[in-house]
């Protein structure tokens, strides 16, 4: 059973998650079909920057985040920005978009100059996230949990972060049981995606280097 307090806690996170999305004018540019390689690079960079800004705004609303040490706040965001962005992009990809949008978006990313060896695990991740059919509360909580990961580099007070992450894991576990009563492994599958995200994060620096070179 999800208690009233947990429901309120979850609503705060969900509301912040829904309110902080990439601005429509930035997102719209992605669907304009004519672009040179250089314009594509700049646009994807603009998207990435916007995504980080939106992520920070969302994170400020995660209960307790602003009470953490300021440098720890930065360490958490730095350590999770790539993973949280992959998670958000995966959700965009698995959401219902108007006809043809998914293809335009996919083609833009495939033509971005990122090497194929990084592209495959990224699109595989998008696919496995899509197959989970998460409800929006699960998406919001999973993103918040990714950000509030205590063992990121340079986090000094890991226990304080753990104290904020635990109640979110608890609500997510209950939500999974409620929404997916016939899939007892669902919560474990979600956590498994977080491990996959860590691998993507690990390759991200190499991916950026290859992208810049291309």
């Amino acid at each position: 059973v999800i208690t009233k307090d947990q429901q309120a806690f979850m609503n705060v996170i969900l509301d912040a998650y829904n309110r902080h999305q990439i601005p429509p004018d930035v997102a719209k540019k992605l669907l304009q079909e004519q672009y040179s390689a250089e314009e594509n690079f700049l646009l994807l960079t603009e998207m990435a920057t916007s995504q980080v800004q939106v992520l920070v705004e969302f994170t400020k609303h995660i209960p307790g985040f602003l009470s953490l040490d300021h440098e720890d706040q930065i360490a958490l965001l730095k350590g999770s920005a790539v993973e949280a962005s992959f998670l958000r992009s995966a959700q965009v990809f698995s959401s219902k978009m108007p006809n043809g949008h998914t293809e335009v978006l996919e083609e833009r990313i495939r033509k971005s100059g990122i090497s194929e060896e990084f592209m495959t695990p990224m699109f595989n991740f998008y696919k496995t996230i899509g197959e989970l059919h998460m409800v929006e509360e699960e998406q919001a909580l999973l993103t918040a949990i990714t950000i509030m990961t205590p063992d990121r580099p340079y986090v000094k007070d890991q226990q304080a972060v753990e104290r904020l992450q635990e109640p979110m894991l608890d609500v997510l576990r209950k939500l999974c049981a409620l929404h997916h009563p016939h899939e007892p492994q669902y919560f474990a599958r979600l956590l498994g995606r977080l491990t996959e995200l860590r691998t993507l994060n690990h390759y991200h620096a190499e991916m950026l280097t290859s992208w810049r070179m291309n």
């Binding site: 603009e46 800004q53 920070v56 705004e57 400020k60 706040q73 930065i74 920005a81």
Partner: peptide
């Protein structure tokens, strides 16, 4: 331009500012 800013710069700026105001 944003493309010249590092991740940490973007995070610090966003943490300091308040886009909602």
């Amino acid at each position: 331009p944003a493309s010249n800013l590092g991740l940490e710069d973007i995070i610090r700026k966003a943490l300091m500012g308040n886009l909602e105001e």
